[in-house]
């Protein structure tokens, strides 16, 4: 799964949905892989406005990408900064989580990721 996916997921436990701590989930002991994708500035421009940037900064820093600024770049800033463009391309479009866990900060449940597929089925006591 792409790292970007974490921006669209939250804890599957019903009681957690209303808690701000259930998003984003926190990667733990994750192995990452990079799948090469041809440069695509238009895709990047159109993904950025729908991203929760604060959550992305949290996810990225937890996975060791600490170069993100506190606020999202404008298209003009991005076009004028080749390094930022490359970094965001790598982070958002190419980086995949292959193994590890995603942890809810509200209930502590860990969702396992195996071979790039996360398991969000809950054990009986959490359904």
């Amino acid at each position: 799964m792409k790292l970007l996916t974490l921006n669209f997921l939250s804890c599957a436990v019903k009681a957690c949905k209303s808690s701000s701590a259930s998003f984003p989930l926190h990667p733990k002991d994750c192995e990452l892989e990079s799948a090469e994708i041809a440069p695509n500035p238009k895709l990047l421009f159109n993904i950025l406005p729908r991203i929760d940037w604060d959550a992305l900064v949290v996810t990225a820093s937890e996975l060791g990408f600490t170069s993100l600024k506190a606020t999202p770049p404008t298209n003009e800033e991005l076009e004028g900064d080749e390094k930022m463009m490359t970094d965001l391309h790598t982070l958002l479009l190419e980086t995949q989580i292959m193994e590890g866990s995603l942890v809810c900060a509200n209930c502590g449940h860990e969702y396992k990721v195996k071979e790039g597929i996360a398991n969000f089925l809950l054990p009986n006591h959490l359904v």
Binding site: M1, K2, T5, L9, A12, N119, L121, L122
Partner: peptide, 19 residues
Amino acid sequence: GLYLGNIVGDLTSPLREGM
């Protein structure tokens, strides 16, 4: 398109609301 991945889950329960 850009494929984000597949998730094992029950219906929409893994998804953040409004996405």
